[in-house]
Write a protein that binds this DNA or RNA. Structure first.
Lengths: 237, 237
DNA sequence: CGCAACATTGAGACATATCAAGGAGAGTGG
DNA sequence: CCACTCTCCTTGATATGTCTCAATGTTGCG
């Protein structure tokens, strides 16, 4: 939870995050109400149901957004990569738990400060709106995967998806789109896809045996043959 | 597809839809770029993947937003009730198919007209942002239901959910929160919950036999005992 | 009344979950 | 550098919930 002072001008996501809408003078004003925060892998920023005090932009790292179901069941309902916005403006309660999957740096605002600032800067709200609409699209694709795909289709479409997100320019750690390190273990893949850890493991093994992917490290995925993987993903939308 | 001229002042959702952000002078300007449109039950407004020409506000009726999976599989990823906004601003393609479930009236804008107008009216964009954030919350609850709930939990949480949405003040046709008419048949309930039509039918019959609900007409649901229904829904969030 | 669409019910198949055991990697301390 | 441990992952055997296929029942409409 260390707090660092870093200039926006040198920020890795300066041109991708919602602050891309602001000029340098506006950024200076914004920087007065923000602070930097580091989260270690596994650390939780906010709990579902708690009062929503803060919102943030991700500078580096990956986080998961989760919903819990009383008994241990958990569903990952979103992932936040660099430049993504997290938190719930205009609402008093946090709607999902936010946990860092890797070491993560975020740029944090008190929710009220952010809301006030945004009210005076429509272009910032516009960026946030575009980002939220895109996230909604993503959530709906994800719903289709959860509701209508078989375990193997789920795995394949997930691998395609994540390979693309990890190789986006904001993400480091991905060499090519075809070989990458997952920022999560098997249980989390299961929580993303609505499966059990054993099914995830079996499906990955099956893909490896089928020669479509290679698994070296626990979390390393190497896509050997993308075309059949895309076909097996039943990806239409 | 008849086009009617109706004043915004008398619009049923004047104070609930995003246009609640506008005063009457602004509304007059807005009314120059909008037109009213009627959709019969079953009619489709836009197809997933098509160019996104229009956006709209729902005045009356219920619509479904769907994703298709090549073979017949379909997932309903959203429902639009009166005052809800449909369409995808700031994006050239329609991201899901929009189909009327009941006879429906909508207030339609060419997407480009709407975007231009919205750019000059930040309070309109703000309303749209709030609505989109709420819709994202809803989508994520829905994901949890799809990914982690059993068939009977899915049905119970769905019934609770829909009874609340149908008794909202914008919706007619719901007498009390406890007795209401579903705006969809069994297949559509199945497409909402990621189940088959047979499983939906069996689960509803089981709830009826258990004395929790009563089924009179094909689409009429009467919640007899709400408390155990809520418990069986595993509703935490 | 009679048709057509929709809904229910049953029997059996199948995919995924569950339970249980064994293996592989990464980190730690000797 | 090796043994030790802990955690995570894989694999197997079995159970079970939901799907599939098929038949029958029901409702509303022309």
């Amino acid at each position: 939870m260390e707090q660092v002072s870093v200039a926006c001008a040198t920020c890795a996501v300066r041109n991708q995050a919602i602050c891309a809408a602001l000029d340098s003078a506006e950024l200076t004003a914004l920087s007065r109400i923000r602070r930097h925060q580091h989260l270690s892998a596994g650390q939780t920023l906010a709990w579902e149901g708690d009062d929503a005090f803060v919102v943030a932009s991700v500078t580096s790292g990956v986080l998961k957004l989760t919903k819990s179901l009383g008994d241990g069941r958990e569903q990952i309902v979103g992932l936040a990569f660099p430049a993504d916005f997290i938190g719930r403006p205009f609402h008093s309660k946090t709607t999902n738990t936010v946990t860092a999957l890797t070491d993560t740096d975020i740029c944090v605002f008190r929710r009220s400060d952010f809301e006030n600032y945004a009210s005076d800067h429509p272009q910032l709200e516009r960026k946030l709106l575009e980002r939220t609409l895109a996230e909604l699209d993503r959530a709906r694709d994800w719903m289709t995967r959860l509701g209508r795909k078989s375990a193997s289709e789920k795995i394949c479409s997930f691998l395609i998806d994540i390979s693309e997100r990890l190789s986006a320019d904001t993400c480091i750690g991905a060499t090519t789109a075809d070989e990458f390190e997952l920022p999560f273990g098997r249980q989390q893949v299961a929580d993303i896809l609505g499966l059990t850890i054993e099914t995830v493991s079996r499906q990955l093994t099956a893909l490896k045996r089928g020669g479509l992917i290679d698994l070296s490290g626990r979390r390393t995925i190497h896509i050997l043959d993308r075309t059949p993987l895309v076909e097996a993903a039943e990806t239409f939308a």
